[in-house]
Measured scan of single mutants.
Amino acid sequence: MKMAVISEHLGLSWAELARELQFSVEDINRIRVENPNSLLEQSVALLNLWVIREGQNANMENLYTALQSIDRGEIVNMLE
């Protein structure tokens, strides 16, 4: 549920979040190519990849820290 809210509000910031979460330029470009027409779909794809990559370590605290690092703390505030 929280992931959906984050995806809805990320907009163009999804790529900046991807870099903050240590995704490569290739990963970011692949997300763009696979989801060409929708920032929402790109955001969802990023968060899904992050959960798959991090497994047990994919917790909201880590995601909140990354969001705050890219000056998107207002998204965190909405969810708390």
Rank of each mutant, 00 (worst) to 15 (best):
T65N: 13
I28P: 04
G11N: 09
N35A: 07
S24N: 06
S13A: 13
N59R: 14
W50A: 01
E16V: 12
V44A: 15
V25Q: 13
N59Q: 13
L12P: 15
T65D: 13
V5F: 15
A66G: 09
P36Q: 15
V25S: 13
K2Q: 10
L79R: 04
N48R: 13
N59V: 11
G55C: 06
A18M: 01
N77E: 11
H9G: 04
L67E: 02
L46Q: 00
V44F: 15
S43P: 02
W14C: 00
V44R: 15
M3T: 09
S13T: 05
A66E: 01
E34L: 08
A18T: 01
I28K: 03
D27R: 05
V76I: 14
N35R: 12
Q68I: 11
L10K: 04
N37F: 10
L39F: 12
R53L: 00
L12Q: 08
I70V: 09
A58W: 12
W14P: 02
L79F: 06
L46S: 01
S24L: 02
R32A: 11
K2S: 05
F23L: 05
R53D: 03
M3E: 07
R53G: 04
S38E: 04
Q22G: 11
R19A: 12
R53I: 02
L12Y: 11
S13F: 06
A66R: 02
L40K: 15
M78C: 14
E26Y: 14
R19C: 09
E80V: 10
M60C: 04
D27T: 08
V33W: 11
R30Y: 07
E26L: 10
I31Y: 05
E26N: 13
A18G: 11
R32W: 07
N57S: 09
E74I: 11
L40H: 10
N57P: 12
G55D: 11
A18Q: 00
I75T: 06
L63R: 00
E74F: 02
R53Y: 01
A18N: 03
R72I: 02
V44L: 13
E41G: 11
F23P: 00
G73V: 09
I70F: 03
N48S: 07
A15N: 07
A15Q: 09
S43I: 00
S43E: 00
Y64T: 12
A18V: 00
A18C: 00
Q42M: 09
I28H: 00
L47F: 02
R32H: 07
E61Q: 15
L10W: 01
N62D: 15
L17H: 03
L17W: 03
Q56N: 09
D27I: 12
L47G: 04
R72S: 04
N29Y: 05
L12W: 05
E8K: 14
N35I: 05
E80I: 03
H9S: 01
A18W: 01
G11K: 06
A45W: 00
E16L: 09
E80N: 12
N29P: 00
E26V: 08
Q22V: 04
E41H: 09
R30E: 07
L40F: 13
R30C: 13
N48H: 12
E16A: 12
V33F: 14
V44C: 14
L46V: 09
A18L: 04
A18D: 00
